[in-house]
């Protein structure tokens, strides 16, 4: 059974200068013990998607569709029921570890707060035990429970964030750009931590990132997003070996490769569309090298090619 089913999810932000369609009609699923990468450029709606699963979007956002987690539609839960899910069933870690911990609380108190919210009857010894185990599982000395966040480096803070997130053994961990704010060496360490956790804990992972390289290290499946739309979804190996959507192709080509003599960096010309006023038809056509007339007028349907989903006129028989 799938752990998470996202069905026809659309999210709009109402702003003073117009309505922003951040996510449009996105459908995918995450199986138990599966890891899914969500990739795309800045502003493609991938972070909105992650925050929407926890229902923590700002009040000017409206969400349509269904987010079915473990058989329950999260969007129809009461606020109180949803609050109980956060941190216990679904946990999230954020991009900037420097500001994700409360600067005036000891690390210990972050854990204790989580435990008290979800397991009010838990004894103090048990809390210390769980917190120490969680810290050990991310390679941090449990002695550091008494430290304040400012006594940690960025990489260490992200480890602590991960430890807090997994302390109550959630079924799903959403990692929103967990390594983006860190330097490459530390990035690699954090990726190792996440890999180990995926091996040892019975947990699913949604890894939101702009970095195709990171996705290939960790994820089994990948969802490529462009301008709020899911443009391609499937097994990571298949997508890497044979990307279907023109955007995925160009995204993969833009990963620098030092093995090639020709070291010119490839990039995707142009920039993502204004989501307040997106182009008619396919959102990608202004940047797409394969644009046909139909792309400019008609939005492509999502078609299934085996296990793969692609949203492009090249494959929709058009």
């Amino acid at each position: 059974m799938e752990l998470l089913n996202i069905r026809n999810l659309s999210i709009e932000y109402k702003t003073k200068s117009g309505t922003v369609k951040a996510v449009e009609d996105v459908t995918f699923e995450v199986g138990e013990h599966e890891s899914l990468g969500v990739v795309g450029e800045s502003g493609c709606g991938k972070s909105t998607l992650g925050v929407a699963i926890l229902r923590l979007l700002p009040p000017n956002a409206t969400t349509k569709g269904e987010i079915i987690f473990n058989g329950k539609n999260l969007l129809s839960l009461t606020n109180e029921e949803m609050r109980r899910m956060r941190g216990k069933e679904i946990a999230m870690i954020f991009q900037d570890p420097m500001t994700s911990l409360n600067p005036i609380m000891r690390v210990r108190d972050h854990f204790f707060e989580l435990f008290k919210v979800h397991e009010p009857s838990m004894k103090k010894e048990q809390m210390i035990k769980l917190a120490s185990e969680a810290l050990e599982s991310v390679g941090t000395d449990p002695k550091r429970l008494d430290n304040y966040p400012f006594e940690f480096s960025g990489g260490m803070r992200q480890r602590v964030m991960i430890a807090i997130a997994i302390a109550l053994k959630p079924k799903l961990l959403i990692a929103d750009e967990p390594t983006t704010a860190l330097d490459v060496v530390v990035q690699e360490q954090i990726m190792q931590v996440l890999k180990n956790l995926m091996k040892t804990k019975n947990m699913s992972l949604i890894l939101i990132t702009h970095d195709m390289g990171i996705v290939s290290e960790l994820a089994e499946k990948v969802t490529v997003m462009y301008a709020g739309n899911l443009v391609e979804h499937g097994e990571i190996k298949e997508i890497y070996n044979e990307p279907k959507h023109p955007y995925t192709k160009m995204l993969l080509e833009s990963i620098p490769n030092i093995k090639l003599d020709d070291m010119e960096l490839k990039y995707i010309p142009g920039s993502p569309p204004d989501l307040k006023n997106p182009p008619k038809g396919c959102k990608y056509y202004p940047r797409c090298p394969y644009t046909k007339e139909i792309c400019k007028t008609k939005e492509p349907k999502t078609v299934k090619l085996g296990d793969r989903k692609v949203k492009c006129h090249l494959y929709s028989g058009g």
Binding site: L54, R83, G87, M92, L101, N102, E113, V117, I164
Partner: peptide, 12 residues
């Protein structure tokens, strides 16, 4: 960010 992070932990 730590306010969002606290909410994401289910804090009231």
């Amino acid at each position: 960010q730590f306010v969002v992070a606290a909410r994401a932990r289910g804090v009231k």
